[in-house]
């Protein structure tokens, strides 16, 4: 079963790499925003192939602050609004060194922003927090990132 999962992951990773491969500085664009229609015709002219690649604009239509408000209600997350994004928490985090996807500063940032698509992308990494508490000691604003990660873990499970 695990092999199948890994196999699926490899296939989708390959597809991701292939998608929009002709775009200059492709790394800056999320794969979801690249559209490559198999057949595209505009005014009777066949535009299929790499000419037909479309990149959706990076606009945020709606900020959802539900998660931010819910985090503030839980004991560990009450000071989340005080974060000024210094990044001390991430700098001292031993998990972030091993897994760069786990970034407490960025998780706090997207929660405060209410950036839904980013939260969706990174929410699984919240559970990597080992609860050592070094971030809370390093934080100059008493945010308690460890507590914020605990609050986020609970809220993601709740489906907020």
């Amino acid at each position: 079963m695990r092999k199948t999962h890994e196999g699926d992951a490899r296939v989708s990773e390959k597809e991701e790499k292939e998608k929009g491969r002709f775009i200059f500085e492709r790394g800056y664009i999320d794969s979801e925003r690249i559209i490559e229609p198999e057949k595209l015709e505009l005014g009777g002219v066949d535009m299929s192939g790499r000419w037909g690649t479309l990149v959706l604009p990076r606009t945020i239509e709606q900020f959802d602050h539900t998660l931010f408000e819910e985090v503030k209600k839980l004991p560990g997350g009450k000071n989340i609004h005080r974060c000024w994004q210094c990044g001390n928490c991430t700098a001292v985090c031993p998990v972030a060194h091993a897994h760069p996807e786990f970034n407490p500063r960025y998780l706090i940032h997207i929660t405060k922003m209410g950036y839904k698509t980013e939260i969706k992308k990174f929410k699984e990494y919240v559970y990597l927090c080992s609860g050592c508490g070094r971030c809370s000691v390093a934080c100059p604003r008493d945010v308690d990132p460890k507590g914020v990660m605990s609050a986020l873990s609970i809220l993601f499970q709740r489906g907020v």
Binding site: P94, V95, H97, A98, S130, C132, R134
Partner: peptide, 12 residues
Amino acid sequence: KRVGLWCEERAH
């Protein structure tokens, strides 16, 4: 495994 893996502070 989880607790000790990334914890640099051995005493903890």
